[in-house]
């Protein structure tokens, strides 16, 4: 085998291995979610779904509180994206463009916030939100999710703006733009794929976050909080369907945006 062929074989081999590693659990969850409740306990599991049925999914969707919690999750995720990008994009831009005093320290501190376990923060947070009258409120969950996603957003958008040459913005300025105009017309459109990626990952972080959502809410549950709350008592079919439901948006989103991410500016 020539080295080239070997290279290709290695690349494809590892890609397939990785894909299988990630896909098998999804596959099992998906198949189970579309298996009639009665057959879920079959063992060994059939490789192909033997009896396709939407019973389980229907049962899940119709279960009490599921639809409102999905809406709650969506609202929280969208608010998190809005807050996170509004706060994080300027910070990332500043990190990329300005060599201000304490820049390195800022970067480290941003990362350091990720080292605080949310579990330690949750009680004081719950107390604070109680005092603010925000307890059991979606806004509280969105704020905490924003805090959790911010370091990630700042560092990713920072990297995105570093990749957009500053000279492009300067060129726009010599061509009649203000600094702000140059940012809007040149840096922002070029950063868009990266910002979209940051938004999607923010969505996924928020959509899947369970701890803060559970601690901070009682009745206005997000989907993961709801599923978690019922984990001990709900039937297996409910869990599979819930799992699929929670994994779905992330998969669909990334699948849809993938082409956009890679092809936005041609062959660059």
């Amino acid at each position: 085998m020539s080295p080239r062929v070997l290279d290709r074989a290695l690349i494809y081999g590892s890609a397939i291995l990785l894909a299988v590693w990630v896909l098998i659990p999804f596959y099992i969850i998906a198949v189970s979610a579309f298996t009639p409740q009665a057959r879920i306990f079959d063992f060994p599991k059939p490789l192909l779904p033997t009896a396709f049925s939407t019973d389980t999914m229907q049962f899940f969707v119709e279960a009490r509180g599921v639809v409102p919690s999905v809406i709650n999750s969506l609202l929280v995720a969208l608010a998190t994206i809005a807050f996170g990008l509004t706060l994080g994009t300027p910070a990332g831009y500043a990190l990329a463009r300005f060599h201000f005093r304490g820049r390195e320290a800022f970067q480290v501190i941003v990362l350091a916030t990720k080292m605080f376990p949310i579990a330690i923060l949750s009680i004081p947070l719950a107390v604070t939100f109680l005092q603010l009258g925000l307890y059991d409120n979606l806004l509280a969950v969105a704020l905490v999710h924003t805090a959790m996603a911010l370091p990630f957003i700042i560092l990713v958008t920072g990297g995105v703006f570093v990749a957009v040459s500053h000279e492009l913005e300067e060129a726009a300025q010599t061509l009649g733009c203000t600094r702000w105009g140059a940012f809007l017309r040149v840096a922002l459109p070029l950063a868009l794929p990266g910002l979209a990626a940051a938004a999607i990952f923010t969505f996924v972080i928020s959509w899947n976050e369970v701890f803060a959502a559970t601690i901070l809410t009682l009745r206005t549950r997000t989907l993961p909080a709801l599923v978690l709350a019922g984990l001990g008592t709900s039937p297996l079919g409910f869990k599979f369907a819930g799992g699929l439901f929670m994994a779905m948006p992330a998969i669909v989103f990334i699948f849809l945006i993938r082409r956009y991410l890679m092809n936005l500016w041609g062959s660059r």
């Binding site: 010599t174 061509l175 203000t178």
Partner: peptide
């Protein structure tokens, strides 16, 4: 004055043509 008010045009070393 800001660059836009100076009545100049500039060609950059990297060309800085807008990729989008």
């Amino acid at each position: 004055l800001a660059p836009r008010d100076r009545n100049i045009a500039m060609v950059f070393q990297s060309y800085a043509v807008f990729p989008h």
